[in-house]
Write a protein that binds this DNA or RNA. Structure first.
Length: 458
RNA sequence: GCGUCGGUGCCCGAGCGGCCCAAGGGAACGGCCUGCAAAGCCGUACAGUCGCGGGUUCAAAUCCCGCCCGGCGCUCCA
């Protein structure tokens, strides 16, 4: 297994901390607004990584946090005249519902920042005691220049960062160095606060993820992931905190690319985002189509989403479903354990090279084509081909063959399909076509096969 | 400006120095199948400059250098 490690800047061999186990921490959302397709990409990327590891026999410990206290939440609570916990609770529920609707597996742990404040305070105390941090009236800060290798993750030196990156934000005059960042923010009026040795306040953004990842997964956990927009400052600063505290942080860093719309990153500030709920409301089939789009593009490459791309992907999914219908129609035993070992090898080697999902999906579609051919030709090879295609597609959570294949018990439809068979037998094609049209208006598609008609909801 | 990832057919998009006259998906065209369809299979046209220009190599879409174009990041914020 090889993967691209952001820190080393190249594809490297993946050697887990413990044999047969993978510990994965992926930064989750700040819950204060609608989850959009950018969140979907991030979550789906690690969902696919996790599913693949599990299918490969690893025991995976997947942690994804929820940031439930930050400026955005505070502002929203203020604007809506409610409390921060109410805002966070509401939007977390929305987020989880969206994830469920995209068939994204819940992480094994979903820690909340507000539940880890004590650990964060302890962590900051370590940094204070060893001289890496200092307190001012406005908060507690990390002495960035004292950290060995600060900026390695973004492949820049502190001087380069200072030279090019400090013109955007007003610099707090109490800081020793403009590069230093907040570990703890002193309380401001009206904000929720927690007690600390440095007075009431709330934790800085980066300390949350350090406390939660190390707290749950332990030192030297395997993979830290997130969107590539987090490489700096968030992940760079997380890493700096861990180093300053003499803790061993993640062994590998992986970052997914952005999802763009109209040539730009989808984001709330640009107001060009599509919420997951809206996209699914347009067409429920978009859930699986979205997953196929993610799979057919490498996770480190930007995706440009538009209606045409969505439509293409929906058609791709239909091709997978159609094969299963066909296989079911000719009586292939879906519980068979026959597999095409050679295809599985190709699938594995694609995935083992930095999660080469596009190549892996190509193997799945080749299996689909060969399975269709074998079914048409009445060959017994159809069984392993079809079942391997289904298994591999479902490793990725595509739920092939799960959706609408077994729409049992619809006796009215069965009766109409049977009536059409009779009409055809009597050469009454006008009647047969009328029934087919009527079914189509009901959202039912009938397909004739060598062994009789099959139907499905379109 | 600096860092980083990228620029491949009509569209999306793989390609990890020779198996690439370039995978897979979508759309198109022709054939087979069908009462007609749908689904499927077979075949065809699309990439003949793999952004542009140099270079390394017996061999480059793949490595190196320069340039052009685009995404993301560049501080207490997803």
């Amino acid at each position: 297994m090889k993967l691209y490690d952001t820190l080393q800047g190249e594809i490297v061999e993946f050697v887990p901390r413990n044999d047969g186990e993978v510990s994965l921490y992926a930064c989750g959302p700040t819950v204060y607004s609608h989850p959009h397709l950018g969140h979907a990409r991030q979550a789906m990327t690690y969902d696919i990584v996790r599913r693949y590891f599990e299918w490969s026999g690893y025991r995976v410990h997947h942690v994804a946090n929820v940031t439930d206290i930050d400026d955005n939440i505070i502002n929203r609570a203020l604007a809506e005249d409610t409390t921060e916990p109410e805002i966070a609770k509401y939007w977390e529920a929305v987020y989880i519902e969206a994830m469920d609707s995209l068939n994204i597996l819940p992480p094994h742990d979903r820690p909340h920042a507000t539940e880890f404040v004590e650990e964060m305070v302890d962590f900051i105390e370590v940094l204070m005691n060893n001289g890496s941090a200092y307190a001012t009236d406005s908060g507690v800060y990390l002495r960035v220049r004292s950290v060995e290798g600060y900026g390695d993750l973004v492949h820049r030196t502190p001087d380069e960062i200072a030279e090019h990156g400090l013109n955007r934000v007003e610099v707090d005059e109490t800081k020793e160095d403009p590069l230093d960042f907040a570990l703890w923010k002193a309380a401001k009026p009206g904000e929720p606060t927690w007690d600390s040795p440095w007075g009431p306040g709330r934790p800085g953004w980066h300390i949350e993820c350090v406390a939660m990842s190390l707290g749950i997964l332990g030192d030297g956990f395997d993979i830290h992931g997130g969107g590539n927009d987090l490489v700096f400052p968030h992940h760079t600063n997380e890493r700096a905190e861990a180093i300053a505290a003499n803790r061993t942080f993640s062994k590998y860093w992986i970052h997914n690319a952005m999802l763009n719309i109209g040539g730009e990153k989808m984001s709330k500030s640009l107001n060009n985002f599509n919420t997951i709920a809206d996209v699914l409301a347009e067409d429920p089939a978009n859930a699986r189509a979205l997953r196929l789009i993610m799979l057919q593009t490498h996770y480190r490459k930007d995706i440009e989403i538009n209606d045409a791309v969505m439509a293409q992907a929906r058609d791709g999914i239909k091709r997978l479903d159609a094969m299963v219908r066909k296989a079911t129609g000719v009586g292939i035993d879906l519980s068979s354990t026959e597999r095409d070992a050679e295809a599985i090898d190709r699938f594995r080697s694609a995935m083992d090279h930095d999660f080469g999902t596009p190549d892996a999906m190509a193997t799945v579609f080749e299996l689909v084509r060969d399975a269709n051919g074998a079914i048409d030709a009445g060959k017994s090879a159809a069984t392993p081909l079809a079942l391997t295609a289904i298994e591999l597609a479902n490793v990725f959570g595509l739920e092939v063959g799960v959706a609408d294949v077994a729409s049992e018990g619809d006796s009215d439809i069965e009766a109409m399909v049977a009536a059409r068979v009779d009409a055809k037998a009597n050469k009454d094609f006008a009647e047969a076509d009328r029934i087919r049209d009527e079914l189509r208006e009901m959202g039912i598609t009938v397909e004739d096969t060598a062994t009789g008609p099959i139907w499905h909801r379109s």
